[in-house]
Computed example of a mutant assay.
Amino acid sequence: MTPSRLARVPLGAAVTAVLVAVLAGCGDSGDLRGAGATPTAVGPTKLWPQLPPASTPALDYGEADTETVKGITAPGDDIHKVDPVAVVRAEVAAHPDEYSGSHAMYAETVQQLKDCGKKGALGKKCPILQAYYRDLTGDGKDDLVLGIRFPKHQLAVRVYTFMHHRLVQVMGTSDSVVSVELAGDDVIIRSPSTLPGYEFRTVWTWDPHQNAMLATRDEIIRVGSVTPTPSASPSASLTPTPSASPTLSPSASGS
């Protein structure tokens, strides 16, 4: 992210202070001087240490579904020779509940596929965006990254690779999208937030244990200036007060 203006002001002040100190010390003998006391490092404060550890997992956030694309092959497993349109049509055929019928969620996308030709001959109404190629799995071979426009301004992002001579979708997600980026071997998707001045940023990274791209980092980031809302009370201390401790009434203890 580009540093904000507020972050640049202290930097300029610090540079000015250094220049003043250098000019004022031209006649200095050069002896070593103490920099003052070093601040004591403060470690994290563990809250509610009496809580027992969780016995069941939370959301299956670290898992991803993969799917073999039926009927799609390429000589030498060269993914550059795979037709992106054929890949999307294979997905449509494999998921009739989502793409077929008048009440299907992506029925409009199927109609738009009629404007898609072969090997990059994509019409104006074709929902398939330009294909990108990058080695995301670390096997030394390019993988295929596809974008598919869905209804209601949704964008599906798919990543495909060859495994054992089979084309496999190793990442599939759809959302309202601000931008999609490839950074090294990561896929970074930025999505709008209902909170003014912020966006969601999700980083997808290859996991060799699950043979899939996982959402390894999901965060909300500041993208604009927002006027902070004045707090009604000063910042609370981490030390709980006696009144904050929960108590049981006689009626509650007997229930």
Rank of each mutant, 00 (worst) to 15 (best):
G140Y: 07
G140S: 09
K141R: 15
K141M: 10
D142A: 06
D142E: 10
D142T: 01
D143G: 06
D143I: 05
D143F: 06
V145D: 03
V145C: 08
G147K: 02
G147S: 04
G147A: 05
I148E: 10
R149D: 14
F150V: 08
F150Q: 15
H153E: 09
H153P: 00
Q154R: 14
Q154C: 02
Q154P: 03
L155C: 10
L155A: 09
L155V: 14
A156T: 05
A156N: 08
A156Y: 03
A156D: 07
V159L: 03
T161V: 03
H164Q: 15
H164E: 15
H164T: 13
R166H: 15
L167K: 10
V168T: 13
V168Q: 08
Q169P: 03
V170T: 14
M171Q: 13
G172W: 08
S174K: 02
D175E: 12
D175A: 12
S176L: 11
S176F: 01
S176C: 06
S179G: 09
S179H: 11
E181K: 13
E181D: 15
L182K: 12
A183G: 02
G184D: 04
G184Q: 02
D185E: 07
D185A: 11
V187A: 03
I188P: 06
I188Q: 10
I188L: 14
I189P: 00
I189H: 02
I189L: 02
I189Y: 00
R190H: 01
R190V: 00
S191P: 01
S193Y: 00
P196C: 12
G197H: 01
Y198V: 08
E199G: 07
F200E: 07
F200P: 00
F200A: 11
R201L: 08
R201Q: 15
R201I: 08
T202G: 08
W204G: 03
W204L: 09
W206R: 02
D207E: 02
H209L: 10
Q210T: 15
Q210H: 11
Q210I: 10
A212F: 08
A212Q: 08
M213F: 05
A215R: 03
T216A: 05
T216C: 01
R217T: 09
R217P: 01
D218F: 04
I220F: 13
I221H: 04
R222D: 14
V223G: 02
G224Q: 12
S225N: 10
S225H: 09
V226S: 04
T227E: 14
P228V: 04
P228E: 06
P230Y: 07
S231A: 14
A232L: 07
S233I: 07
P234W: 07
S235K: 13
S235N: 11
S235R: 11
L238H: 04
L238R: 06
P240L: 07
P240D: 05
T241E: 11
T241V: 04
P242R: 13
S243Y: 12
A244W: 04
S245P: 00
P246R: 05
L248E: 13
L248Y: 11
L248Q: 14
S249I: 08
